[in-house]
């Protein structure tokens, strides 16, 4: 049975392509639910919503864009979340620990804790990327951005310096890997 003469395949192709992009966008929006969960966790840990919500919004937009685009950067999102959740949790826990004060001087744990946990998270991220063969610079960069945004959500609750420390820790470890990947 031949198709009817009125059938416009070019138009159908355009409709199918638009449906594909819409479907990907819907899937990406659904796939960004961990961002909402992380934001809720931060809010429950008494983080200021004026700080958490803008970062969470930016985080969600980046995740949706990466997942919608697809391929290796989309697969790197999960690794970024895993790497970023360590400094996030450490930062949220640091908020609850009082400063160690003795003899009139106090030492804060939060800043070094954020830096150290971010570096550990970034090492884990590079290991995860190598295991999953995400060694192209774009996917490593995507994972590092997601890890940084995840870490930031927890670290900004204790100050901008902690957030910078978390981002610095991630950049310190992932930057060489990204550069090596780019040179190959």
């Amino acid at each position: 049975m031949a198709p009817g003469p009125e059938l416009d395949l070019a138009r159908l192709r355009v409709r199918a392509r638009a449906a594909y992009e819409r479907g990907r966008l819907r899937a990406a929006i659904r796939g960004a639910w961990p961002v909402a969960a992380l934001a809720l966790l931060c809010l429950l840990a008494d983080a200021p919503w004026t700080v958490v919500l803008p970062i969470a919004t930016l985080h969600a937009v980046v995740v949706i864009a990466l997942v919608h685009r697809g391929r290796a950067p989309a697969r790197a999102v999960a690794g970024g979340w895993l790497a970023g959740s360590l400094p996030l949790l450490v930062a949220l826990a640091s908020c609850k620990v009082p400063h160690a004060c003795a003899g009139g001087s106090c030492s804060a744990f939060c800043l070094p804790a954020c830096l150290a946990s971010a570096a550990v998270g970034a090492i884990a991220l590079v290991g995860h990327a190598r295991r999953r063969r995400l060694d192209d610079p774009a996917s490593l960069l995507a994972a590092a951005v997601i890890a940084g945004l995840t870490a930031c959500m927890g670290c900004v609750t204790i100050g901008l310096a902690s957030a910078i420390a978390a981002l610095g820790g991630i950049a310190l470890v992932t930057a060489p890997a990204v550069l090596v990947g780019a040179r190959r």
């Binding site: 198709p3 059938l7 159908l12 199918a16 449906a19 594909y20 479907g23 899937a27 697809g70």
Partner: peptide, 14 residues
Amino acid sequence: AQRAMVSLFARASA
């Protein structure tokens, strides 16, 4: 068939 193609590509990412 046209509806099926549109539906199919809409769900392709799943």
